[in-house]
């Protein structure tokens, strides 16, 4: 102690030796730049939300989901066929994409030998597929699913196309969830005489389900807003009935919005805004479920 105090006294003029220098200008500028970028992202979303809600508020009532669209009478027009179409479309897409994506992810994570060139090629291509523009998937759906396979231009073709579109995203997120299960769990299971499939089915999958569910929902919420591939598939923008079978014609919210925006009468603009609010609400619900799943069931090892 004595040594310390004597050195302190010799080196410093008073008790303020720990005050430090002021924060340099460069650091302050950097911090402001960070915050500004954040503000841009949030502010645009907030402005958009405020705009569509204020514009669409007048028509955010039961008519929107109780009535069918109408070209002649905007005061009675609704978007029931589009809302139902979107929900069916999402359900079918989920049905196609989740099992396929999870099985592909299991193969890549648990079985594929990464030293083999074809597995590396496969991995690289899945990354690439995730970046292909959705309109290209629309062409694929039109050319292969609708024409060559001959499923026509109904709900099932739309769902299959959207499933292909988000499949890479589902695979990538499912792989991450599977990879997050520690290898020690697999070893523990195998050391007890479990087969590889038993290990995957009873240990790896149950532990990665929250992650897989979260990733899949986020992937679907990308699909819900897609219009381009559906336009390519010739999904009608004006459909005044709900789809009743897999091959029925259908419309979806983004298409209905596109249709209304293009109308000349201002009432349809209001309708478009209220439909946008519905679409965003569906999206927010899906994302909330994803976040809830993640927070609630996330495993900590």
């Amino acid at each position: 102690m004595t040594v310390l105090t004597s050195i302190g006294k010799a080196a410093s003029p008073g008790p303020r030796q720990l005050a430090g220098r002021r924060r340099p200008v460069r650091e302050t500028v950097f911090l402001i730049a960070l915050q500004f970028s954040l503000v841009i992202a949030i502010a645009f979303l907030a402005v958009l939300l405020a705009y569509v809600i204020s514009k669409g508020w007048a028509r955010l009532d039961p008519r929107l989901w109780e009535n069918m669209p109408s070209i002649r009478r905007p005061e009675n027009a609704g978007a029931q066929s589009a809302i139902v179409g979107t929900i069916y479309l999402m359900g079918l897409t989920a049905l196609f994409v989740i099992p396929t994506g999870v099985l592909a992810a299991i193969y890549l994570e648990e079985y594929a030998d990464r030293d083999k060139w074809y597995n590396r090629l496969l991995e690289l291509n899945i990354q690439n597929l995730a970046g292909i523009p959705s309109i290209v998937y629309g062409i694929l759906g039109l050319g292969i699913i609708a024409r060559v396979i001959g499923l026509g231009f109904g709900l099932i073709t739309g769902a299959l196309t959207l499933a292909l579109l988000v499949l890479p995203v589902v695979i990538i997120s499912a792989r991450e969830a599977i990879r997050a299960v520690p290898p020690s769990i697999r070893e523990g299971s195998l050391a007890l005489g479990a087969t590889q499939w038993q290990t995957i089915y009873r240990q790896v999958l149950p532990s990665s389900i929250p992650g897989i569910a979260t990733g899949s929902i986020l992937a679907l919420s990308r699909a819900i807003g897609e219009a381009a591939p559906l336009v390519m598939l010739g999904a009608a923008t004006f459909v005044a009935f709900n789809p009743e079978s897999l091959t029925d014609g259908f419309t979806a919210l983004p298409l209905q919005i596109y249709n209304w925006i293009g109308q000349s009468r201002p009432e349809f603009g209001v309708l478009a805004s209220s439909a946008i609010v519905v679409l965003l609400a569906l999206l927010l619900v899906m994302n909330s479920v994803a976040i809830l799943l993640r927070n609630r069931y996330q495993k900590r090892w």
Binding site: P182, S184, I185, E187, G188, S189, A191, L192, G193, A194, T195, Q198, R202, Q203, S207, K299, W301
Partner: peptide, 27 residues
């Protein structure tokens, strides 16, 4: 199945105590 193994870091499955023990016989 004949030659069991215990690892460096305890690696219980994220299940109940009962299910951890029952896992081996079950598989």
């Amino acid at each position: 199945r004949r030659i069991g193994m215990v690892f460096q870091k305890p690696n219980p499955f994220p299940k109940s105590i009962y299910d951890n023990i029952a896992y081996g016989p079950r598989v």
